[in-house]
Amino acid sequence: MIIGTPKEIKNNEYRVALVPDGVKEFVKNGHEVLIEKGAGVGSGFSDEYYQKAGAHIVDTDELYKRAEMIYKVKEMLPEEFRYLREGMILFTYIHSNAFREQTDALLESKTVGIAYEDIEDKDGKFPLLKPMSEIAGKGGMIIGLQYAQKINGGNGLMLARVHGVKTPEITIIGAGVAGIGAAEIAVNLGNKVTILDIDLDKLEKAKQILPPNVELLYSNAKNLEECLVRSDVIVNCILWPKWRKDHMISKDMMKIMKQGSLILDVSCDEGGAIETCRATSHDDPIYVEEGITHYCVDNIPAAFPQTSTYSLCNATLPYALQIANKGYEKALKENKYLRKGLTCYFGELTLEETGIKQNRPYKTPEEILDI
């Protein structure tokens, strides 16, 4: 199979899907790898590194014309839609429910789209979200330190313990990978940290990992309200179901929060768990609503590309090799966990949550593949 890794064109996206060591794995398995010129520069990989690993450096047009599988990081942007074609495999973070225009283009072009974010493991977790979730949680908290500063539009509160001064309070919603990552940074700076979750097993795991002074609360209306009243920072680390119309934190609830406090929405589901959240960019990362500063950048790991590129490739490469070695149809039929990621298939939508959110007809992957 011919695998093509393009240069990401999303604003401030410095990651690349494939590292040189990953190229070697494809070549060892008898595949050809095309890398767009300059694709790895943002992550510290020159074209020469890729060539030494066995890849061919090509321009954008040649890559999309020849590649049978496009192996990338972010969703396809409108400028890239013209490269989509029937039977081409797109393996990336697709987020079809959030980008209707992209979904239209994928269906019209009859592309085979397999989304990182929907692939599951035997425990029902999302192994290709996990590495980026850790970096997003930790990175979001690190970046939050910057936007709490007065010179960057914050209220001027140092998010750290300083003797003689009241210690800041940080509430993290979600005790998953992102939440634990955010908590590790926050607690190591001496902040008072509370984690909310409805999963008692996750809270038990957090208890084993984090210091005993971290408060672990069951997430209910009373506990959430108390945290909103007293917290200086709210960090949202839960994925909100796309079909839900309600919110964990509504616009009205912000009236009880401290004026000038900070919301870091790591999950960045527009109008999701937090009603007032909308995606922002690294160029224009914050806005103020109801007196609360919101940071809702939807690609936080892109700010740390040398770390996140390696982490992402480590997670996605085994699945990419399955698709390349077996072909997409056999790989999807044989691996039910990979099959969860099938988003579209020759003009048919195969992801339920996108069908519900966008009011589109859809079929299950099993129906499409006749399993």
Rank of each mutant, 00 (worst) to 15 (best):
E353I: 08
A136H: 00
A302R: 03
G87N: 15
I274E: 03
V233A: 05
N191R: 05
K52P: 02
K326L: 13
D269N: 14
D269G: 11
F81S: 12
N12C: 11
K52I: 08
L338E: 12
E275Q: 15
E169W: 01
L107N: 06
G341K: 08
K138C: 10
D123N: 15
E13N: 13
K333N: 12
G341V: 09
K251I: 05
V33I: 09
Y287I: 05
E13D: 14
Q322F: 00
C237M: 13
N299Y: 08
E36M: 01
L107P: 13
R161G: 03
F26M: 02
G272A: 00
P305W: 05
C227T: 13
E62R: 11
L239C: 04
T354L: 11
A178C: 09
L332E: 08
I185A: 00
E62M: 06
G137S: 06
V19H: 07
V58N: 01
L239R: 13
E62Y: 09
Q259F: 07
P211C: 00
G40M: 05
H95P: 00
G139W: 07
K28T: 00
I368N: 08
G179R: 02
Q51F: 01
A115Y: 02
D246A: 12
V33Y: 07
V288L: 10
M132Q: 11
P285L: 11
E270W: 01
M76C: 12
V235M: 05
E134T: 10
K24R: 15
G40C: 05
L157F: 01
A115E: 07
S96Y: 04
A279V: 07
N220E: 14
E225A: 14
F91Y: 14
P131Q: 06
E226G: 13
E270G: 06
I195A: 10
